[in-house]
């Protein structure tokens, strides 16, 4: 449907202008702020060399909620997600302005250690990417790295608990020391989630975690996300609107690097305020 966007640039850009106008008048989009946020983006802009990927995004993430970031390809969802735990630091030519407040502390500031930050904010990627090590060593990687446990028995406990929470324990308990790459795609992705929660992060970032999986595996991960949301805040980037509608509490819609609309998932999917959002959700665009 790129064709449509090209065909009607005035409509698109005027809608974008309208959306921006809404934002600039109040400083924040309605529904962008929450009480006692875990994580807040304030006026975030991201540039890759000369290209601006994100423009002035401000929004909050609440305690123990699932926030879905949706929007057409190239709208900057993944970039924003990687901005939250400073994964873009290692991307050359990437520059971030504005700030992200995590637990009352700005993370884009001298003296903030991205290593410590990432230990509190896990990330799961689009393609399952287990290390070419054993299943056990994959899960034990984080706790070992940060020295979270003292004894082998403790480590065993952490591995077992993490695998149990992702529902993988019963499937792999007899072959913990087999290579992780021998697992199926869905199992690999759950292993990656187990690997992430083994360091007990406060926030879990998920970048289209189900896009490489079949429907059954997707369903398992979605129910796992609901389960995890009891203890963690989850931000998920997804292409799949049904998925956003099924799992998330709130939804944010992005378009060409701008945050267009944010609100409860019900509101976004039933009564979107912006025409761009409506077009996307109804499948007329994207």
């Amino acid at each position: 449907m790129v064709f449509l966007r090209r065909a009607e640039p005035p409509q698109s850009s005027s809608a974008l202008a309208a959306a921006s106008a809404t934002q600039s008048s109040s400083g924040f989009l309605p529904g962008a702020l929450v009480d006692r946020p875990r994580l807040s983006a304030r006026d975030i802009s991201v540039y890759y060399a000369d290209v601006q990927a994100i423009t002035n995004v401000s929004m909050d993430v609440a305690q123990h909620e699932i926030l879905a970031l949706i929007g057409p390809s190239g709208c900057g969802k993944t970039t924003l997600l990687r901005t939250f735990n400073r994964m873009n630091d290692s991307v050359r030519g990437c520059r971030v302005t504005g700030n992200v407040i995590f637990d009352g502390e700005p993370i884009y500031r001298k003296g903030v250690d991205p290593v410590a930050l990432r230990a509190r904010m896990g990330i799961v990627f689009q393609k399952p990417n287990p290390f070419p090590k054993s299943i056990y060593d994959n899960v034990a990687y984080g706790p070992r790295l940060h020295g979270l446990v003292d004894r082998q028995a403790e480590l065993d406990e952490v591995v077992e608990a993490s695998l149990q929470r992702t529902g993988l324990w019963n499937e792999v308990k007899d072959r913990l020391h087999k290579p992780a790459l021998s697992l199926s795609g869905g199992q690999q992705q759950r292993l990656c989630i187990a690997r992430t929660i083994a360091i007990a992060p406060e926030i879990i970032l998920m970048d289209e975690p189900c896009s490489a999986l079949d429907p059954i595996a997707t369903a398992r991960i979605e129910s796992l996300m609901r389960e995890l949301a009891r203890n963690h805040s989850i931000i998920i980037v997804t292409h799949n609107m049904q998925q956003a509608a099924r799992v998330s509490d709130r939804t944010a819609y992005f378009h060409e690097g701008h945050l267009i609309e944010i609100g409860t998932t019900d509101q976004i999917f039933t009564t979107p305020e912006q025409s761009l959002t409506e077009d996307y959700i109804t499948g007329r665009y994207g």
Partner: peptide
Amino acid sequence: PERLRQRLADAR
């Protein structure tokens, strides 16, 4: 799991 998670978070 919940207690373990808490313990890990504290340890961290």
